[in-house]
Design a protein around this nucleic acid. Structure first.
Lengths: 198, 198
DNA sequence: GAAGAAAGTGCCACTCAGTGGCATTTGCGT
DNA sequence: ACGCAAATGCCACTGAGTGGCACTTTCTTC
C-alpha cells in the first residue's frame, strides 16, 4: 500500500478533510490574490477554522502553501526507500523523481503548478521551499546510510539543484505533461555543465 | 580601488558608522544569546537606534545577521567581474571564491564564523541565507552574459552547493585558516560525486 | 554666516504571523 | 448514558515590519 488505507475513525477522517480543505483553499486563494497579499485570516474564514487550529495542522502560512511540493518530495523518499536501485546514483535519483512524478494523481498537477508560480514571486515562499529541499537532502543522505559522505552530499545537492533548474525552465509554460522532459533534459546537461569552459 | 574611498561627506561617514555598528553589535548579541532568542529591540537599544531607522539600513533582522556572508559574496562578484578568467569554469569560480576569501580583512573572519554558526541552528537564517545564494547565482549568470543557459546555470548551482558543503564541513571546528582547504577538497570531490554508483 | 532645501531620524499607531492558557465541544470506549 | 481524551475555539500576548508625520541635522547657496 503506497498510501495508508482511509482510516476508519470518524475523528481521523475529519482531520484529513480539514487538512485537505486548508491546502486546497490555500492554493486557490493564494493563486488568485497572491501569497503575500492574502492574509492568513482570509484563509481561516474561508475554511471556517480558528487561527489556533490552523497552527495545529501547519507550522506556518508558507507551510500550507507548499503542500503540493512537500507531497512530491514525500513520495520521492518513499520511492527511494522501496527500491534501492543500482547503477549511477544520479540516474537513480532522476528515475525516482520521475517515478514520484508519475505517481501523483491528476488533482495534484494544477496545485503544483500554482505552487511553483507562487514560489517564483514570493521570496518568503522561495526561502521556505529551499529550506524544505535542504531537509529532504538530509533525509536522503540518512536513507542511504552515509549522512556524512562528502561526495554523496555533493551528488544529492547537484540532483536537487538540477531538479529546481528543470522546474524553472518548465515554469513559463507549466504545460502539464512536459515536466518529465525538462527533468530529463536538465539531468542530461549535468555532465556538460560541470565541464563548461570559460 | 577595490573598496570605494572613504566618503568625504560627514553625512555619509555617519551612515557607514551606523551600518557597521548595527552589523557588529548584531553579530555580538546574536552570537551570545542566539538569533531567535534575541529580540530586535535589544539590538536597537544597544546601538541606540530607533526601530524605524534600523529598517532604513537593513531589510530585516535576518539581513543584518547575514552581513558577513553578504560581504563575502559581494567581493566574490567583484573578483569575478574584474578578472574574467579562463579554462574550466568551475576552477574559475573556485579561485574567485578563494581570492575573495583571501581579500577579507582580519576583522571579518570571526564575524563570519559566528554567522555560520548562527545559520546552522536557526531555520529562519538558513532560509534567508539560501535565498541570498540564489540571488548571487542569478547575478553571476547575468555577469557572464548568459542568464538563460541551462548548463551554465547548473554549473553555478553546483559550485555554490559545493561551497556550502565546504562551509558545512568547516563548521565544527571553524578553524581560522582551514576554510580554503575545505573549499579545495570539496571542489576536488565534485567529479567523483557526480559519478557515484549505488 | 544665515536661510532654505534635502536627507536622516524618532515616535506613534497600525497590520499580520505565530504562541500560550484555558474553557468548551466532540468523538470514543465502556 | 457516562466519563475520558482529543480537538477546537477564544482571548490576550509577543515580535517583526510598515506608514505617516513631525523634528533635527547636514549640505548648499547666496
Amino acid at each position: 500500500m503506497t498510501h495508508p488505507a482511509p482510516p476508519a475513525s470518524l475523528r481521523e477522517r475529519k482531520k484529513v478533510r480539514t487538512r485537505q480543505a486548508l491546502a486546497e483553499t490555500a492554493a486557490a486563494l493564494f493563486g488568485e490574490r497572491g501569497f503575500d497579499a492574502t492574509p492568513l485570516d482570509d484563509l481561516l474564514d474561508a475554511v471556517e477554522v480558528s487561527r489556533r487550529t490552523f497552527f495545529r495542522y501547519y507550522r506556518s502560512k508558507e507551510d500550507v502553501a507548499l503542500t503540493a511540493v512537500k507531497e512530491l518530495w514525500s513520495v520521492f523518499l518513499e520511492v527511494l526507500a522501496e527500491e534501492p536501485g543500482t547503477g549511477p546514483l544520479r540516474d537513480v535519483f532522476r528515475d525516482a523523481l520521475l517515478t514520484a512524478l508519475a505517481r501523483m494523481d491528476g488533482d495534484w498537477h494544477p496545485r503544483f503548478a500554482t505552487t511553483v508560480r507562487l514560489t517564483a514571486d514570493s521570496p518568503a515562499l522561495e526561502g521556505h521551499s529551499l529550506l524544505h529541499c535542504a531537509e529532504v537532502q538530509a533525509e536522503t543522505r540518512r536513507l542511504l546510510g552515509r549522512p556524512d559522505d562528502l561526495e554523496l552530499r555533493l551528488l544529492i545537492e547537484f540532483c536537487v539543484a538540477t531538479w529546481r533548474s528543470a522546474v524553472d525552465d518548465w515554469l513559463p509554460t507549466c504545460a502539464p505533461g512536459e515536466l518529465p522532459d525538462h527533468v530529463r533534459r536538465a539531468f542530461a546537461a549535468m555532465e556538460a555543465g560541470l565541464h563548461l569552459e570559460a
